[in-house]
Simulated scan of single mutants.
Amino acid sequence: MAAGAVALLLGGVWGYTRLKNPYPFFGTAYDARPAATTFAGTDQDDRAFAFAPDGKTTTALFFGFTHCPNICPLSLSYLTKVRQSLPEAERANFRVMMVSVDPARDTPARLREYANFFGKATAVNVPEPQLAGVARAYGVGYEKADVKSPSDYQINHTTASYLIDRNGRLRVLWDYTQLPQVDRVAADVRYVMANPAP
């Protein structure tokens, strides 16, 4: 009887979890579906850019910089593969975006060269101190490291990517190590595109 009671309890917990999140996301789901913080800056084409929900575009967002030796280019590469794997109709409404954590060096021209290398990625420069507030809102940390001169340094930063639905709700967080599994990341994207938060 005790074993049966434990099994019943575990089954109830499992069922409750499934009711809260019926879709088995590969990334970590945001149960509360909080609103993603909006922000403004300059994009890679040197145009004013404002990130806000538009009712049609789903966004994969991460914070990086163009001098990053490995994680940032790989993140962009994997997310671009996710975008390319989508059916054409869905691809048009899925955006890959990088917000620079190195606004001093990541000029629009530098961002344009970087973003163009990865297809149709959007790259945004948000100046300080606004950048610090945006990063904090997303739980992103960053700091200069290995500083040799004012223009020669690296930036240590967190490496998560955030999936934001077309209504501006945070839905999924992927750890950098999950991005190489393109098919599973794409499945998360397709589900969120088809099921935006109200």
Rank of each mutant, 00 (worst) to 15 (best):
T17W: 09
R18E: 08
I155K: 02
K144D: 03
L86F: 06
N195H: 15
V134P: 05
V192W: 09
F94D: 13
D106N: 07
Q154V: 02
K144H: 10
P129I: 12
T122V: 15
D43I: 07
F117D: 03
L86S: 07
V126F: 00
W14F: 13
V134N: 12
A7W: 01
C72R: 01
S75W: 03
P198N: 07
K81C: 00
V172S: 12
D165I: 08
L9Q: 02
L74G: 00
P73Q: 02
D188M: 11
Y30H: 14
V124D: 04
T177V: 13
A145G: 04
S77V: 00
N167C: 08
K120M: 08
E113H: 11
R190I: 03
T80I: 09
T59E: 10
Y153Q: 01
K20M: 12
A60F: 14
T59A: 10
L86N: 07
N195V: 01
T80G: 14
V13K: 01
Y30C: 00
G11W: 05
L19S: 04
T80H: 14
K148G: 03
L10I: 08
G41F: 04
D152K: 01
L19T: 06
D102Y: 00
Y138A: 13
V101R: 02
D45W: 07
R112F: 04
L173G: 00
R169V: 09
H67S: 13
P108C: 06
A3R: 07
A89D: 05
K120T: 14
F65D: 03
Y153V: 01
L79Q: 10
E90K: 14
N195L: 07
A123L: 08
L163Q: 06
F65Q: 05
D146E: 12
